[in-house]
Each structure stands twice: as structure tokens, then as C-alpha cells.
Design a protein around this nucleic acid. Sequence first.
DNA 1: ACCGCACCCTGAGCGC
DNA 2: TGCGCTCAGGGTGCGG
Length: 307
Amino acid sequence: MGRPAAAMRGNYRGRPMPELPEVEITRRHIEPLLVGRRIADVVTGSPSYFFITPPDELRKRLRGATVKQLERRGKYIVGDVDTGDSLLLHLGMTGQLFGSGAKSVRLLSSTARASLAPETQVDFEPDTHTHLRFRFEDDGPEVFFRDVRKFGKVMLTAQDEPNARLDRLGRDALTVTGEHLFEATRKRKTPIKAVLLDQSVIAGCGNIYADEALFYAGVRPGRRAARVTRKECEAIARELLRVLTRSIETGGSSISDYVAPDGSDGQYQDERRVYARTGEPCLVCESEIRRKLVAQRGTHYCPQCQS
DNA sequence: ACCGCACCCTGAGCGC
DNA sequence: TGCGCTCAGGGTGCGG
């Protein structure tokens, strides 16, 4: 029992934030529910931080429109709309995008979940955190966008106009190379982890996979980026690609099991080597995994395996 | 150009 | 039992 509270703090609470794999899995799941179906109506919540494009404008511009294809760019899901608009969706920290057929206790709060058996299936009812609701002319399943903390984003932008958010993105994490990382780090004094999290360098990498990739590559997250060797950059790029790919595969395989594509139920959580394992033994050398702040993010590493 | 940090938000989990 | 506090994090934008 009693691990000290300080060691527990920041430990895994069972809901990884959406990074590239979670976004990609969500995109794949939502694609057949969204693409090619004419939108009859969009029901929105009140204006908030969540709506880059105001809700009333969103409703106006999406009514009668059809999303032709759905892509992922970094952590953004981008819909190509037949009106000439692009629909940008970002899941932020707690965003969930799913069809009205979803039945999962994972869509409930932990309090509500606690009173139910883990396998219980419950119909999802739109709540105060459901900011977007797409209805279609074919009367088929609706699509919901729910986001408790409103760190997620929705916006419409004209396809023929530049979009600062997308234009800023660097190379997609699934195509990252050691050479790219090496060049991007040469003049950076900031920690290597900060570079991995910089979406203008590697689009799609987030806190979990940055920590995991650095562990496998044997590089301490706090090391100055410019001090990371070419060989280490190659290792980081290779390991990042590996953990991301593996996560998409395992998450993708589990998704059909529970229907709700909330991006939080991949199996990768069980393969974590350092993330949120503070105080637990390293699975390679048994040293205690440490946690510290790097680039204002909770950061986990093995003091023995990483240098 | 680069870097660190405040801000946005709300639920979980802790101490008392 | 329950209140109140702290913490978590992605992306943006600002000041140094």
C-alpha cells in the first residue's frame, strides 16, 4: 500500500491525453460517420473558449454541407467540406468525438462510473460538456464532440486561405527522421523534450510519447537539445516512430471492442516504461523512475538508463 | 529568433 | 462526510 503522496502525484489516472495515436484512432473511427453524409443541422453549446468560430456562424456555414474527406495533421482532425471550407477539430486534453451509437461507461464521470460494473453499457445522453452535435439528412447516427475542459477547439476556415494553426505545424511525427531532428536541435538551448513537444518541429508528439521515446533512446529529457548527438537524434526519431505506430496498432485493435472512440482506451497504457510510473522500478534496471518538471510538463525518466 | 511562463478549464484526489 | 485546495495538460500569446 502506502506509497507516499508525493510519489503518487502526477501518476497515471487512466485517461491519456489525446496525442497523435489517439487522434488518428478517433479520425479513423469518425470518418465513416462523417464523410459523405449531408449535414442537416449542427447543435452547438454556448460561445466559449472552445469555439474559435462562433457557434452561430458554425451552424450557418455547416448546414447543408458535406464533409468530403477527413485527414489528420499533427493533432488536428481536418475535414474537407464541399462548401470550400475546412473544418478543424482539436481534441485538446479531454476532447471526445464519437457517434450517437456509442455505449460506454467511459463516457461518464468517474463518480457515475463507480456505481456501475465496468462492462456496463449505457446510452450516451448529450450533457453540458457536449459542445457540438452533427445531425444528418439521412437520419442515421449523430456525431458528438464532448470536451469537459474546453481545451479542445473547433473552427471553420476557407480552404484557399492560409491557416496559421496548420501552417505552423512541422513534419508529422509519423514521418520524423533523425536528420530532421538533428537539424532542428542544433541551435536550441532548450531541453530536448521541449523540442519534441514543439508542434512546429514535430507535429503530433505529446507528453507521454516524448517521455517514452526518450527512455528507449536513453536520453535524459532535460538535456540541452544542441547537446544531443546525431546518433541519439536518430535513436529518438526511431523510437518515437515505433511507440506511436505501436500505439495506433494496439489502440486500433481494441477500438472495435468497446465502440466509443474516445481515444482513451488503447492498450498502450500497459506498455508504458516511464510515463506516470514515478517511484516504481525501471523495468530494465529496477532503479526508481523519477519525475521532474521539464518545459513546464510533468516528465518521467530513469536516472540509470538515460543520460 | 528563442525561451520561459501565464492563461484558458474542470474533475480527481488529497488533507483536514 | 464533505469542503476546499492543488494539480494536470496543449496550444497560444506575450514579455524579456
